[in-house]
């Protein structure tokens, strides 16, 4: 409970003023009836004069009770003038139900305490001076120092001419050292489609990059933190990307030994599914012509549905599609 007492004490000091003190202590009065007369000066301190004062309880009751400041604030006030700069949290000036911190008692955890006498709120830097209207004011103020954005440079143009994005972070804090180890970590991002690659190279680059390539967004993301300096890390990440790019263009001798489990997608043309289908029709019809047969719509549909079964996640719709196509081949297909 210590912080609360401290806080009350502070409040009391701000309230008391010189005039108030004098009025209370000596009882300076101005009689309205006879203005020309001098004011009566009571030399005797008021506390020693009998019968002049009302009892304490009554005085307390008569004192005007103001509602707290945060309740008196109008909704459309200028917040920037209430909280112009960064400063310590002041509960009476913030009309928000803020809660922060933890309370552990014998009977178990309690909900976080409110804004009054809450040291947790006073400790942390708040950003109440950075409300959107305040930022807008700042921007308006510094606008005269800026030049307009080039009209021709649209977002698409940016993507086209500056595909590589380098993300760095700077840290600023009040400690004896200005170095922050996290500042060296950098991220580079680039879209796979913006690189000049053929089918084989694209597939190989994906395999080399592994989790660094996201197929949903088509983005390559490389994070570098090996070197001690930021600029070194940027160079290193760029080197990695270049190395991967040129490695992807090479075709090694062992790449011809790719098996079905290594396929990036299902190739029906090379699969045992095709072999078994042709085998089936060879047995059924004497004058079977493979080339003509493979160009039929039914066969193409069938190959597509098998490919879907392998490439996509198996579900009832895909199986239904597969069933229909197989049905056509097994029951109705004629040469």
């Amino acid at each position: 409970m210590r912080p609360k007492n401290l806080f009350l004490c502070l409040r009391f000091q701000t309230i008391s003023s010189r005039l108030f003190f004098e009025k209370r202590f000596y009882g300076i009065q101005k009689s309205s009836a006879d203005e020309e007369e001098f004011d009566k000066l009571n030399i005797m301190p008021r506390m020693f004069v009998k019968g002049d004062r009302e009892p304490l309880a009554k005085r307390e009751a008569l004192r005007p009770q103001l509602t707290p400041r945060y309740n008196r604030m109008p909704v459309d006030q200028d917040w920037n003038s209430v909280w112009p700069t960064a400063k310590m949290f002041n509960p009476s000036a913030v009309p928000l139900p803020v809660h922060m911190g933890k309370l552990k008692t014998v009977s178990g955890p309690k909900p976080p305490p409110g804004k009054f006498a809450n040291p947790e709120l006073m400790k942390v830097p708040n950003f109440l001076h950075l409300a959107p209207p305040a930022i807008k004011k700042h921007c308006d103020a510094i606008r005269k120092f800026c030049t307009p954005w080039p009209q021709a440079l649209t977002d698409e143009m940016c993507d086209k001419y500056f595909p590589l994005e380098v993300i760095t972070s700077d840290y600023c804090h009040a400690s004896p050292t200005i170095r922050e180890p996290k500042a060296r970590i950098i991220t580079i991002r680039i879209k796979l489609s913006s690189l000049d690659l053929d089918y084989h190279a694209k597939d190989k680059l994906k395999r080399i990059l592994q989790h660094r390539y996201d197929p949903k967004t088509d983005l390559i993301t490389i994070v570098a933190d090996k070197c001690p300096l930021k600029s070194q890390n940027i160079d290193y990440a760029k080197y990695l990307l270049t190395a991967c790019f040129f490695e992807a263009w090479k075709t090694e001798s062992w790449e011809s030994e790719k098996e079905q489990s290594d396929w990036e997608t299902f190739f029906w043309e090379k699969s045992p599914s095709k072999a078994s289908l042709i085998n089936y029709f060879k047995k059924t019809f004497q004058n079977f012509n493979e080339e003509n047969f493979l160009e039929k719509d039914t066969v193409k549909d069938y190959s597509k549905s098998v490919k879907n079964l392998f490439d996509k996640e198996e579900n009832d719709e895909l199986l239904e599609d597969y069933r229909k196509n197989v049905e056509k081949l097994l029951f109705d297909e004629r040469l």
Binding site: S276, L277, E314, N315, L319, R323, V326, L330
Partner: peptide, 21 residues
């Protein structure tokens, strides 16, 4: 589902088959 349960080997053996739910 049949493709998952039959595994690759079983699917090869049975393809083309008619799945009935």
């Amino acid at each position: 589902l049949p493709k998952y349960l039959l595994t690759e080997k079983g699917f090869q053996d049975l393809d083309p088959f008619i799945p009935i739910k």
